[in-house]
Amino acid sequence: MDIEVFRRKKRQFTIFALVMVGITLLSSKMTDFDFIHSLLSIPEAFKWMASNLFITSESLEKMPSIMDKLFETIFLSIAATTTASVFSLLLALLGSQTTKVNNIFSTLSRLIASVFRNIPIVAWALILLLSFGQNALTGYFALFLATLGFLTRAFTETIDETGKASVEALQATGANYFQVVAKAVIPECSPQIISWILFMIETNIRSSTLIGILTGTGIGFAFDLYYKSMNYNVLSLITISIVAVVIAIELVSNYVRRVIL
């Protein structure tokens, strides 16, 4: 019996692998993508980076302005994430099966989460550019709306996974809706909620670099400016600064997760 199950799983995996290979070859054919050429170009790419992307004393003079733009990006990401998390928690409480008020609000909350989450953040930025123009407000709203959709879904699933024993115990004592949420739901879900917020801060800092290119703000604008002027020395400094900040924030975030979880 075990041998037959193993053979069936092996056969399914083989079929799946062949289908994926076929799709990959078909996609490369339709897009004129050459695997051999791409592999042969890798050494040349590294050679170009070694000869162009290095930091000089002149590029280090730009460090103060780069740090200003970088901090602008970080604070914008944090502001968008924290404000979106508040609204996401409210929508999640309405959408969760554990804390929903009625089916109408629950369906509406899940619909908002689904729509906002499935629209890419770049699409939000392009849409908002038509209304607000190239400024920090456009970047903020793009991050806010994308984060709202993602965190609403994440918070809803987190609340749904909450043990209903404590909720039912409080309801049995005559506690109202707000008391149940404050005394049972939030305390039990808070570690996971904080973890999701930290995750989105990391994600939004990376995303806001791309958003900055579109909105003309933050470190993304500086990256685009020096890239178009072909000042690759400063560009390499910007890239290293972004990577260093993202890694530092990720390390802090992981430490906080280990403490609270």
Rank of each mutant, 00 (worst) to 15 (best):
S114H: 14
I3F: 09
F16L: 14
A154I: 12
Y140N: 05
E72R: 00
L128W: 02
V185A: 00
A248M: 13
E202F: 06
S229Q: 08
L53H: 02
L26T: 12
I238E: 05
T107F: 15
A45G: 12
F75S: 08
S229V: 04
S131D: 02
F223R: 04
F116S: 13
A248Q: 07
T239A: 13
S253H: 11
S241Y: 10
D32K: 10
G212I: 05
G212D: 04
I238G: 04
P64Q: 03
I23Y: 06
A169P: 05
I219F: 05
M30V: 15
S57R: 02
I247T: 05
F87C: 14
L89N: 11
T158G: 01
E202V: 09
S106N: 09
G174H: 10
W48G: 00
N254H: 09
A142S: 10
N176L: 07
T158S: 05
M20A: 12
S27D: 06
L93A: 10
T73H: 01
S85E: 07
F199M: 11
L237T: 04
S85M: 04
A80G: 05
Q192C: 04
Q97W: 14
W124C: 13
V252E: 01
A113D: 05
L91V: 10
S106V: 12
F35P: 08
A165L: 09
I121V: 15
S241Q: 06
E168T: 07
Y227S: 10
I201D: 11
Q97R: 15
N233R: 00
V181L: 10
S59I: 01
L145V: 03
A169T: 07
A80L: 06
L129M: 10
L210E: 03
S207H: 12
I211H: 00
I194S: 03
S88N: 14
L251T: 12
F221R: 09
L225Y: 14
I78C: 03
L198S: 09
S229H: 05
I247M: 12
T156Y: 08
I211D: 04
S85F: 08
T98Q: 11
A50L: 02
L94T: 15
R258W: 12
L128K: 01
Y255E: 08
E188P: 05
S208L: 15
L126A: 09
N103S: 15
I197D: 01
F223V: 06
T83L: 15
L70E: 00
L93D: 07
Q179E: 13
I36V: 14
V101E: 13
I193Y: 10
N233I: 03
E44T: 02
E58G: 00
F132Y: 10
